[in-house]
Simulated assay, not measured.
Amino acid sequence: MIEIERKFLVTSDAFKEEAFTHNRIKQGYLSSVPERTVRVRIKGNKGFLTIKGISNQSGLSRFEWEKEIPADEAEKLLLLCETGVIDKTRFEVKTGNHIIEIDEFYGENEGLIMAEIELQNETDSFEKPIWLGEEVTNDKRYYNAYLSNNPFKNW
């Protein structure tokens, strides 16, 4: 139940040619407090409820609990969420033994393209594609909960 991930900005849309899947995602936050974010997500035709704890000092690890819920229930929960629903397409690219998830944002966060890679441990190495840019793992501005309240277009 510990999520270990690194975040990067993406420098080009070349990843789209390498993607083996992509899904539209709509998500909102019942709580965007860093110590306990509670997220409602609709990914494709599935709903999810996710609770995340605060990141450790390196920004790489944090508690994460997620359960699939019916999509119609997720739609109803989105109506209860804080202002600032996130709208994005997630592309998935295989690199070595890992999957990189690339999010292309729309609406208030248009222009932001960010990649995340989940790791087995904090020192796990991985192949870095050429389109993977600056690491922003420990920059709180790039957390989706932050983006929902402080959109990229306002930076």
Results as ranks from 00 to 15, higher is better:
Met1Tyr: 06
Ile2Gly: 03
Ile4Asp: 01
Ile4Glu: 06
Glu5Met: 01
Phe8Ile: 00
Leu9Gly: 03
Thr11Gly: 05
Ser12Cys: 10
Ala14Gly: 00
Phe15Pro: 13
Lys16Thr: 02
Glu17Phe: 04
Thr21Asp: 15
Asn23Glu: 02
Asn23Trp: 05
Lys26Trp: 03
Gln27Gly: 02
Gly28Arg: 03
Tyr29Pro: 01
Tyr29His: 08
Leu30Ser: 05
Ser32Glu: 10
Ser32Leu: 11
Pro34Glu: 05
Glu35His: 01
Glu35Pro: 00
Arg36Asn: 15
Arg36Phe: 11
Val38Ser: 04
Val40Arg: 14
Arg41Leu: 13
Lys43His: 05
Lys43Thr: 15
Gly44Ala: 03
Lys46Cys: 05
Leu49Asp: 05
Thr50Ala: 07
Ile51Lys: 13
Ile54Val: 11
Ile54Met: 10
Ile54Asn: 14
Asn56Lys: 10
Gln57Met: 06
Gln57Arg: 07
Ser58Phe: 07
Gly59Ser: 13
Gly59Val: 11
Leu60Cys: 12
Arg62Met: 04
Glu64His: 03
Trp65Arg: 07
Glu66Thr: 14
Lys67Asn: 14
Glu68Leu: 08
Ile69Thr: 10
Ala74Gly: 13
Ala74Thr: 11
Leu77Gln: 10
Leu78Thr: 03
Leu80Gln: 09
Glu82Asn: 07
Glu82Ile: 03
Glu82Val: 00
Thr83Asp: 08
Thr83Ala: 03
Val85His: 05
Ile86Ala: 02
Ile86Trp: 00
Ile86Phe: 00
Thr89Lys: 02
Arg90Ile: 00
Arg90Leu: 10
Phe91Asp: 02
Phe91Arg: 02
Phe91Ser: 09
Glu92Ser: 15
Glu92Phe: 11
Val93Glu: 10
Lys94His: 13
Lys94Cys: 11
Lys94Val: 15
Thr95His: 11
Thr95Ile: 13
His98Asp: 01
His98Glu: 05
Ile99Pro: 04
Ile100Glu: 04
Glu101Ile: 05
Ile102Thr: 00
Ile102Ala: 01
Glu104Lys: 14
Glu104Thr: 07
Phe105Met: 01
Gly107Met: 10
Gly107Ile: 12
Glu108Asp: 15
Asn109Pro: 12
Asn109His: 09
Asn109Glu: 08
Gly111Val: 07
Leu112Met: 09
Ala115Ile: 02
Ile117Tyr: 11
Ile117Pro: 07
Leu119Met: 14
Gln120Thr: 13
Asn121Phe: 10
Asn121Gly: 03
Glu122Trp: 03
Glu122Cys: 00
Thr123Glu: 09
Thr123Phe: 01
Asp124Val: 12
Asp124Thr: 12
Asp124Arg: 12
Ser125Ile: 06
Phe126Gln: 04
Pro129His: 10
Pro129Tyr: 07
Pro129Arg: 13
Pro129Thr: 11
Trp131Ile: 08
Trp131Cys: 07
Trp131Thr: 09
Gly133Cys: 12
Glu134Trp: 08
Glu135Pro: 05
Glu135Trp: 02
Glu135Lys: 04
Val136His: 08
Thr137Arg: 06
Asn138Cys: 11
Lys140Thr: 14
Tyr143Asn: 15
Tyr143Glu: 14
Ala145Asp: 13
Ala145Glu: 06
Tyr146Gly: 03
Ser148Gln: 02
Asn150Met: 05
Asn150Gln: 07
Asn150Gly: 07
Pro151Asp: 13
Asn154Trp: 10
Trp155Asp: 14
